[in-house]
Nucleic acid binder design. Structure first.
Length: 420
RNA sequence: GUGGGCGUAGCUCAGUUGGUUAGAGCGCCUGGUUGUGGUCCAGGAGGUCGGGGGUUCGAAUCCCCUCGUUCACCCCA
C-alpha cells in the first residue's frame, strides 16, 4: 500500500459518511430524550486547567497516566489538559456559575485518554451524558438510570444489562475499606502480582480484576452492602424500589466498583451482552456528592451517567439494530443539456425543502443515472434536449415500478411532493 | 506501560519449498445501448507487495529493526 504522508493519530479515526450520519442520528435521539426529561445542553470547553481533572482522585488512572496535557503560551504558562471525561467539567461550571439547583444538564462530545487502543477503546472517543446537581433525592437516581435505560431501548438494543451497586459514603465506606484491605492483605499470596500492586493503591479496584487467579479471593471478599450505614442503605433501597416501580430490570452487582474515585452511594453500569470484546460497558455512572466541593464550590450532591457512543454503535452492530438513516436526497437531477437547467431545477427543489443533488462534469446520461442510483434518491429528474425545448422535466421512479412521466417546470415541486 | 496476531490494488483477500512483466472478486471509469440506473457482456485505470537494512545469482516470500494496525492485560465509555 502506498504509504500516505499523514494519517489520523493513533487511537483516533475519521468517521466518514454514511457512518457519520448514524452517529449524528444517535446523538440527536439522545438530545430529544434528554431535553424531554428536562435537561438543557451544556457545552463546556474541550480543555480545562489540569487541576480540574486532578480532583478526580489520585488513584484514578484516567488522571494519573492517561491525560493529554500541555502548557499554553501564557506567562506564566498554564497547565491544561484535554478533557478525559465530562463530569469534572460540569462540576467546575456549576461551581463557577452557581446555577439554581437542581441543575439538570446533558452533553455530547469528544473526550481524550492516552491509552492503548483496542476494540471499543479509542484515544479520542465520544460520550453522551447527563448530570443533575443539587439534589440527593433517590428519585433523581432513578430518573437518571431510567433515562439511560430507555435510551438503549429506543435504539432497539435488547441485550443490555443494568448493574447496580452502592459504594456507601464518608460515613460508612472507610470502615468497609479497612475490612476489605485487611482481608485482601491476609490473602495477598493468592492474588496475582498485578492485583497485589493494585491493593496498595486502591483495594476497591482489586474487585474489578478479570484475572482467573484472583477470582477465588474476590468471591469471598467482604461486600460494601454489608457495611452501609442506615441512611445510605435506606437511600439505596429507595433507588431499587423506584426502579421496580417503573419496571426497569437490574442486577445487584455487589462487586461493581468504578474507575473514577469520586463515586459515592449509587453506582451503575450498562453492559452490552452482545459485545464479545473485553470492553462491553456501554455506559456507566453514579453519585459524586463531594465533587463540586472538591472543585471549590458549595457542598452539592450530584449524579449522572456517561454513555459511550462508539461502543453503543458497536453493540448496535452486534444486535443488528439502529441502521444508518436513509439518504436525505430525494431527487437526483440528471441534466444532459449544455445549459444551466439542471442547476436551476436543483436549486428550485432545495428552495422548496426537497433534498436534491446532481452530477457534475457533463457526463453521459448513463453515467449520471448510475450516480443517481447510487445516491439512494428515490426519484430522478431528467432534463434532456426535448425537455429543455418544451419546458418540461421527466420524473423517473428509481425504486418502485411507477415508471416515468413528464411534467412542466411549474408542476415539478408538487409532483415530487406527491411521490416522496 | 506489557504481551500475542496481522500489514499484497479504494475494499476483502489469493500468491504453492524464494524463480520470468504480482493476481482474483467487489468497487471505480469507458463502451455495448448516440436520451435511462439497478441485471448481463467487453475493455480500462489503479500496486515502488507498510518503511529501512540484511541474506541470496534472484525476496511479496527468509532474518533483523522500525512504523502502523488489531486483540488481550491494566483501566475505562
Amino acid at each position: 500500500m502506498a504509504e500516505p504522508t499523514f494519517r489520523a493519530p493513533k487511537g483516533t479515526r475519521d468517521i466518514l459518511p454514511p457512518e457519520s450520519s448514524r452517529r449524528r442520528a444517535l446523538i440527536d435521539a439522545f438530545a430529544v430524550r434528554a431535553s424531554q426529561a428536562g435537561f438543557g445542553e451544556v457545552m463546556s470547553p474541550i480543555f480545562e486547567d489540569l487541576g480540574v481533572f486532578k480532583r478526580l482522585g489520585e488513584s484514578t488512572d484516567v488522571v494519573t497516566k492517561e491525560m493529554f496535557d500541555f502548557f499554553d503560551k501564557g506567562d506564566p504558562p498554564q497547565h491544561l489538559a484535554l478533557r478525559p471525561e465530562l463530569t469534572a467539567s460540569v462540576c467546575r461550571a456549576y461551581a463557577e456559575h452557581r446555577p439554581t439547583p437542581p441543575w439538570k444538564v446533558w452533553y455530547e462530545g469528544p473526550q481524550f485518554r492516552y491509552e492503548q487502543p483496542q476494540a471499543g477503546r479509542y484515544r479520542q472517543f465520544s460520550q453522551v451524558g447527563v448530570e443533575t446537581l443539587g439534589s440527593d433525592d433517590p428519585q433523581v437516581d432513578v430518573d437518571t438510570i431510567v433515562l439511560g435505560w430507555r435510551f438503549y431501548q429506543s435504539l432497539g438494543l435488547s441485550q443490555v444489562t443494568l448493574l447496580l451497586n452502592s459504594l456507601g459514603d464518608a460515613s460508612c465506606r472507610p470502615a468497609y475499606l479497612d475490612a476489605l484491605r485487611s482481608y485482601l492483605e491476609a490473602n495477598a499470596e493468592n492474588l496475582s502480582p498485578q492485583s497485589q500492586t493494585t491493593l496498595e493503591r486502591n483495594p476497591l479496584r482489586v474487585l474489578d480484576s478479570k484475572r482467573a487467579e484472583d477470582q477465588a479471593v474476590i468471591a469471598a471478599a467482604p461486600l460494601m452492602v454489608d457495611f452501609l450505614s442506615d441512611e445510605t442503605a435506606e437511600h439505596f433501597a429507595a433507588v431499587r424500589s423506584g426502579l421496580d416501580q417503573v419496571g426497569v430490570p437490574y442486577e445487584i452487582s455487589p462487586r461493581l466498583v468504578r474507575g473514577l474515585d469520586y463515586y459515592t452511594r449509587t453506582t451503575f453500569e450498562f453492559a452490552a451482552e452482545a459485545l464479545t470484546s473485553a470492553q462491553n460497558a456501554v455506559g456507566g455512572g453514579g453519585r459524586y456528592d463531594g465533587l463540586v466541593e472538591a472543585l471549590g464550590g458549595p457542598s452539592t450532591p450530584g449524579i449522572g451517567f456517561a454513555l459511550g457512543v462508539d461502543r453503543i454503535l458497536l453493540a448496535c452492530d452486534a444486535e443488528g439494530v439502529f441502521d444508518t438513516p436513509a439518504a436525505a436526497v430525494k431527487v437526483f437531477v440528471v441534466d444532459v443539456t449544455e445549459s444551466n437547467e439542471g442547476l436551476k431545477v436543483c436549486e428550485q427543489l432545495r428552495a422548496a425543502g426537497i433534498g436534491a443533488d446532481r452530477a457534475y462534469g457533463g457526463r453521459s446520461m448513463k453515467a449520471q443515472m448510475k450516480v443517481a442510483d447510487r445516491s439512494g434518491a428515490p426519484l430522478a429528474a431528467i432534463i434532456g434536449d426535448d425537455e429543455l425545448a418544451s419546458g418540461e422535466i421527466t420524473v423517473r421512479d428509481l425504486r418502485g415500478d411507477s415508471g416515468q412521466h413528464r411534467v412542466s417546470r411549474d408542476q415539478l415541486v408538487a409532483t415530487i411532493q406527491r411521490l416522496v
